[in-house]
């Protein structure tokens, strides 16, 4: 099944709280090994198998509005 969408994380806005990681139902977000400008390990989107369902849970839980969610048009949405 193709991905229904993807997310972008503004790494410099991210404070590495991990809420998006813990609430992603597909487990597609992880902590980056790099540091951001604030000194946090920011969240990092990792979806090699294109399993993102664009549910937006990560966006909903992000306290810093660091996540933008994109949906692909024409892919069935049934979240």
């Amino acid at each position: 099944m193709p991905a229904r969408g993807y997310i972008e994380i503004n790494a410099d806005k991210c404070k590495g709280c991990g809420l998006c990681i813990s609430f992603c139902p597909q487990k597609l977000i992880r902590f980056s090994e790099k540091f951001n400008t604030k000194g946090y390990h920011p969240a990092e989107f990792h979806d090699p198998q294109k399993r993102c369902i664009a549910c937006g849970f990560c966006y909903q839980m992000c306290p810093d509005s660091a996540i933008t969610v994109y949906r692909f048009k024409g892919v069935t949405q049934n979240v």
Binding site: A54, Y59, V69
Partner: peptide, 18 residues
């Protein structure tokens, strides 16, 4: 495939970081 922005920071938030 056409992408559309689905969820992003609302306009009524400023650019200031929390």
């Amino acid at each position: 495939m056409i992408k559309e922005m689905f969820l992003k920071k609302p306009k009524s938030l400023s650019e200031k970081e929390f």
